[in-house]
Simulated assay, not measured.
Amino acid sequence: MVITPWDGGTKLYENSLDVRGAIHETVAANIANEETPGYRAMRLPFKEALQTAVNGGGPLQPMKTHPYHLPVIAESERQFLSVTTPLQGGGPDQNTVNLEEELTQMAENNLMYMAVAQFLAGRFDGWRSAINEGR
Rank of each mutant, 00 (worst) to 15 (best):
Q51W: 00
A130H: 00
K64I: 11
D18L: 02
G89D: 09
Y68M: 07
N15Y: 06
G126N: 06
V54N: 08
R123Y: 04
Y68R: 04
K47D: 03
A117G: 01
L50Y: 04
Q51H: 01
G126D: 03
N132W: 02
P71V: 12
T4F: 05
L99V: 15
L120F: 05
G58T: 11
L50I: 11
N95Y: 05
A41D: 03
L44W: 02
Y13L: 13
L60D: 02
P71L: 11
E35A: 11
L87Y: 09
L50P: 07
M114L: 13
R123I: 05
I3C: 02
F119S: 02
R135S: 00
M112N: 13
V2C: 06
A130N: 05
L60Q: 11
F119E: 01
D125I: 06
F124A: 15
R128Y: 04
L50S: 07
K47S: 05
T4G: 07
A115Y: 15
M112Q: 15
G134Y: 08
N30F: 01
N15D: 12
N15P: 04
A107F: 15
E48W: 04
I23A: 04
A41K: 06
M42H: 03
N15R: 12
S82L: 04
N30M: 03
E100V: 13
G58H: 08
Q118K: 15
E100L: 14
T36K: 06
A117D: 00
E100W: 08
N132H: 10
E14C: 00
V97W: 03
G90K: 08
E34M: 07
E48I: 05
G9F: 08
L120H: 04
F46R: 09
V54M: 13
A32Y: 02
F46T: 10
P5C: 13
F124K: 14
G91E: 12
K64N: 10
E34N: 03
G90H: 05
R123S: 07
H66T: 09
A22G: 12
V2P: 12
G91V: 04
E34G: 06
M112D: 12
A115K: 15
T84I: 10
R78K: 11
T104G: 03
Q118M: 10
S82K: 09
T84A: 14
H69Q: 14
R78C: 01
V116K: 01
M63D: 04
F80T: 06
E34V: 07
Q88F: 02
P86F: 03
L50V: 13
Q118G: 10
G134E: 10
F124E: 15
Q88L: 09
L111W: 14
P71Y: 10
Q79D: 14
I31P: 06
S82R: 09
